[in-house]
Design a protein around this nucleic acid. Structure first.
Lengths: 207, 207
DNA sequence: TGTACATCAGTGAACGCGCGTTCACTGATGTAC
DNA sequence: TGTACATCAGTGAACGCGCGTTCACTGATGTAC
């Protein structure tokens, strides 16, 4: 009965080791380039053991995505979350949350992004992951029009632009390391600049 | 002498046919997924003929990049190009130029982007392709501070943010077709919204 | 508590598929005389 | 202008490499009695 524990425990440890190893390998060489045997080697297991846990690299990524979503729910339901986008602090809060989330889950985010280029299933998954945030942003933007402000365009389109900006800016600086610019950037400066740009962009004409 | 022409002509035609076929195949199935034989089949040639012209898929993409850069030089040296970013029209002009360029060269841009995920050489190439535009934008932004305006951050960082915004927004709407939003977008609305957002973002606090 | 058998997690060598790449061949074009 | 030979663009079947995936095997854990 409880004696089932040792085997299960061992299997669970191996599965966890494979997932952690995968994140490291993805971060190092990219999801698309990563070989199954790179992951098993990194985890210190034999090649064959991989298939006791996952049907393939895609399923492993799905599992990582599930973990990520489980963790994300905590963040979204966070405290002190003002939705009034006429308030610069509310915008900064959202930018900061995104930045932290991206940084914390970089390996999986980038892996998903890469998988999406090659596999329509993951393209859909990634869209599903980001779409609620866009809708969420659009909702907040309506506070601005409600307060008499004028947005630079349709709320949904503006929200998608903000999402595009945050995503690609984070990618440029956190993943590529700002190498196309030849300069480094602190988290604080990144968030401040993004928040200021967005606040002016959406609220600049208010009143 | 002139009789060399027929052979050369035939070879040149095949090379051109392969390049055009590659763009179609890349647009359809993506650079990473495209097989050499997909390209030769699309071009109506035998598999082996590919290697009379290119050492591999990477070299073909390099050739497409060279073509793209040759075409791009014409656009950049375009007429009536105001550099004063305190002027909304100047910003709109730049956004429009980017949008047209992206749309016209979508297949190659996306192929480069995909290749960059897997091959550091192309990552560098893509950076080299975009970096001058960022520097160019940063230069224009200095007009704003010169005119007494206050940017939301360091000019280079703001320029990279604008580049990130334009790239990812174009990608979302032109390549992915805005499917995460469930709405379509005309070129005009896209450019208007981007231009308005950027203008407010960088010049909103001026005076 | 002990023994005999069953099940399971993990191993790693071997297999085989997919696709890039080669190469002997063809027919046409170019050159030499 | 004609003939004999050389070169070249293109062909497509065959080869072979890399890597995902399988599978017979091992030793440990679990179960039955």
């Amino acid at each position: 009965m409880a004696s089932l524990g040792v085997r299960r425990e061992r299997a669970a440890q191996t599965e966890a080791a494979l997932k952690e190893a995968a994140k490291r390998v993805f971060a190092r060489s990219g999801y698309l380039t990563a070989k199954i045997t790179d992951i098993t080697a990194e985890a210190g297991r034999a090649a064959g053991s991989f298939y006791s846990h996952f049907a393939g690299k895609e399923e492993l990524l799905e599992a990582l995505l599930v973990d990520l979503l489980a963790g994300a729910d905590q963040g979204v339901a966070a405290p002190g979350h003002s939705t009034d986008f006429t308030d610069p602090a509310a915008i900064r809060w959202h930018v900061d949350a995104f930045w932290r989330f991206f940084r914390a889950n970089q390996a999986v985010m980038v892996a998903l992004h890469q998988a999406a280029m090659v596999d329509e299933r993951f393209a859909r998954r990634l869209r599903e992951l980001l779409a609620p945030d866009i809708a969420h942003l659009a909702e907040h933007l309506r506070h601005i029009t409600a307060a008499g402000g004028e947005l630079p365009g349709d709320p949904l389109v503006v929200a998608s632009a903000i999402g595009a900006l945050m995503w690609q800016f984070a990618y440029t600086w956190l993943v590529a390391g700002g190498e196309e610019i030849g300069r480094s950037l602190s988290d604080e400066e990144a968030v401040d600049t993004l928040a200021a740009l967005i606040h002016r962009g959406v609220a600049g004409v208010a009143r």
